[in-house]
Simulated assay, not measured.
Amino acid sequence: MTTAKPAPIAALEEVGVSVWLDDLSRERLDSGNLQELIDTKGIVGVTTNPSIFQAALADGEAYTDQLTELAAAGTDVDEAVFALTTDDVREACDLFRPVYEATDGVDGRVSIEVDPRLARDTEQTVEVAARLAQTVDRPQVYIKIPATEQGLPAITETLAAGISVNVTLIFSLERYRAVMNAFIDGLEKAHAAGRDLSTIHSVASFFVSRVDSEVDERLEQIGTDAALALRGKAGIANARLAYQAYEEVFATPRWQRLEDEGGRRQRPLWASTGVKNPDYPDTMYVTDLAAPNTVNTMPEKTLDAVLDHAEVAGDQVSGRYDEAQQVLDQLADLGISYTKVTDQLEAEGVEKFEASWAELLSGVQEELDKAGRR
């Protein structure tokens, strides 16, 4: 039985923020923990990525029975990973079905990522995205596609096919504008094909704390008082300017035509919202980025911090764009290249997900081999 939402979650929702959990595992599903989080902590969605699935597999015995069955069937490692992850996402979708129905499809969403080894392969990304959506076979599923240059046309084609998309690994404002353009291209194609636009949803996952981690390192290398005073400011400034871009794009006549046909705006999603620096307030990427029609997907540690002591003071983004731009200008004056930072973060993001995927494949192969010997 769902209870009243905790005060900080209710306050965020009052602003227009949907709170999602950045974690999923078979253990969470089997133990009832995910249902409890829905019922008592007010989360209305879940995101996953290769790192999360790799950690879930490495922790405990929750996947042993299914791995034994897969091994007995002679399933190869890639197909085994596909089966394990899509089963988890399908079950999570079923738990969120009441939320999905109560919010007219806006929330109650669960994301699953295309194999990150395909991040630079448009055609294969489109094919795998379609297979993931078909296999999970739940209307709430979001297919995660990274915002690489090759990912942009894949985003368009996947949306055009009527599949909802979570665009991930967005770091720069220029790339974010390209993502929104790819989204609108996709809806225009879907409309031309006669699809019901109201059933196609999307979020754009703009990463926050990783920007601070990279910029702070450069500021500390400079070491001046002016440089050190800017630590912990770049990530929020960057996200606020992203929201300004969102407001601009979704106020254009081009978008209005689609909205008149039932199109739903692609919501900004703040990702990587757990603080990396323990000196920073542990809720700052939540409270300082509260804004209408956004999603904040947070690890459980951050969710617990929000529930314990977050002070939600309304919309902290709209209209603060000059202040945000000043931060980026000051960084540029210190010789910190915004483009170099965001390009590096995108490349590292893809590499990290590929490395986690390789660990996941290795772990599953090891478990398949063990099961085959039993």
Score class of each variant (00 low, 15 high):
M1Q: 12
A4T: 12
K5W: 09
P6W: 07
P8T: 09
V15L: 07
V17S: 01
V19G: 01
D22G: 05
L24I: 01
R26G: 06
R26N: 12
T48Q: 08
N49I: 05
P50N: 10
S51E: 10
A56V: 05
L57K: 02
G60N: 13
L67H: 07
A72P: 06
D78M: 07
F82Y: 13
A83H: 01
T85Y: 01
D87W: 01
E91N: 07
F96L: 14
R97K: 10
G105A: 13
D107H: 09
I112V: 15
V114T: 11
P116C: 13
T122V: 10
L132Y: 11
A133N: 15
P146Q: 11
T148C: 12
Q150S: 10
Q150H: 15
L152A: 03
S164T: 00
N166P: 05
N166R: 04
N166W: 07
L169V: 09
F171D: 06
F171I: 04
S172M: 00
S172A: 11
R175K: 13
M180I: 08
N181A: 13
A182D: 08
F183I: 04
D185L: 09
G186E: 08
G194S: 08
R195N: 13
S202P: 10
V208F: 04
E220R: 15
E220C: 06
L228K: 13
K233H: 10
A234T: 08
I236L: 12
I236Y: 01
A237M: 04
A239M: 03
R240E: 06
A242E: 03
V249Y: 03
A251G: 11
R254Y: 09
Q256D: 07
L258Q: 01
E259C: 07
E261I: 00
G262C: 07
Q266Y: 02
W270E: 09
G274F: 14
V275M: 05
K276L: 11
N277A: 06
V286D: 02
L289T: 07
D308E: 14
D315F: 09
D315P: 05
A324C: 00
Q325Y: 00
Q326T: 03
V327R: 05
I336E: 08
K340V: 15
T342S: 09
Q344G: 14
E348W: 10
A355H: 10
S356M: 06
W357Q: 12
G363I: 04
